[in-house]
């Protein structure tokens, strides 16, 4: 069985601030890492492989430096990896990113099962997975918190809903996005680092794709635009309430209602 895991390189820390005067993003260092949520996706793939065998490929989109996370995936046990890198992909929003990745998936050959993390730590939209499934015309299930069974032609998974848990059987090829904590991700192995030192990482750019229409990629293919960025307002409230118990209760009740903790 062929499993594909989509991974992304994200900043090493979320400590970004906006300089209020200049509107400039302040970010310390240029450290980056694999999106922590993708580790759960990769771990899920590795566990499935442990039980059922198969091949695990990873695919990422990003600048050439993003090769480092593919190497890291090799160190965790992935068999094969590719990077989609082209400056024409720059400035992509959710739609353009999803389209680019779906083209990349077509390029490397269809997988039976595509696994994505729940979301990324830099964009945290949790939408790229479902959009890719749409572009590939395959079904998807989001918020998977348990793999129940791998069958010949389908996978049975448990899906986390707000009030309920749904068990669904989904036919291959399909895409799932997995919850944090579905499995505890393993750490990269130094032994595997030595073994995979020379393993190839394929790099594809727009010219390798079936659809070479530049208008569908990067900024040009992005229907949304960021108009401005600004620092969030923080809860600096510091109130001390004194009084008799009825007054205090009233205040507490009102506050809980204002904050929507009581309907």
């Amino acid at each position: 069985m062929d499993i594909l895991v989509l991974i992304k390189q994200v900043p090493g820390t979320n400590k970004v601030e906006v300089d209020e005067k200049t509107g400039v993003l302040k970010r310390d260092g240029v450290d980056s890492k694999m999106n922590p949520y993708d580790l759960y996706a990769l771990e899920t793939a590795l566990r499935i492989k442990q039980n059922k065998g198969g091949k695990i490929s990873v695919l990422s989109m990003g600048p050439p430096q993003a090769e480092s996370i593919i190497k890291e995936a090799y160190m965790m046990g992935a068999d094969d990896g590719a990077l989609l890198s082209d400056r024409k992909f720059a400035g992509a929003d959710v739609l353009a990113t999803s389209y680019t990745l779906s083209q990349g998936i077509k390029k490397i050959g269809k997988a039976d099962l595509i696994i994505c993390g729940k979301q990324t730590t830099d964009g945290d939209t949790a939408q790229v997975g479902p959009e890719i499934a749409e572009f590939l015309g395959i079904p998807h299930v989001a918020n998977v918190r348990k793999i129940i069974e791998i069958k010949e032609k389908s996978i049975v998974v448990e899906m986390d809903m707000p009030e309920t848990v749904e068990i669904v059987d989904i036919k291959f090829p399909c895409l799932i996005t997995v919850e944090k904590d579905i499995f505890q991700p393993r750490l990269p192995s130094y032994k595997k680092k030595l073994e995979t030192k020379d393993r190839e990482i394929k790099v594809f750019s727009l010219k390798d794709f079936d659809d070479k229409n530049e208008k569908k990629y990067g900024l040009n293919g992005s229907p949304t635009q960021v108009e401005r960025i600004f620092p969030p307002s923080v809860n600096n409230d510091k109130e001390i309430w004194q009084g008799n118990s009825d007054e205090l209760t009233e205040k507490l009740y009102k506050k809980l209602k204002d904050l929507k903790f009581i309907q």
């Binding site: 929003d93 959710v94 739609l95 999803s98 939209t125 479902p130 499934a133 572009f135 918020n143 899906m159």
Partner: peptide, 23 residues
């Protein structure tokens, strides 16, 4: 932005090749 909404909205957005802003 429930489990269903987060699944359905991006699917629809991609079908119409339009923008979707989450959360």
């Amino acid at each position: 932005a429930t489990t269903v909404g987060r699944s359905l909205a991006p699917r629809v957005a991609a079908r119409f090749r339009t923008g979707l802003t989450a959360d």
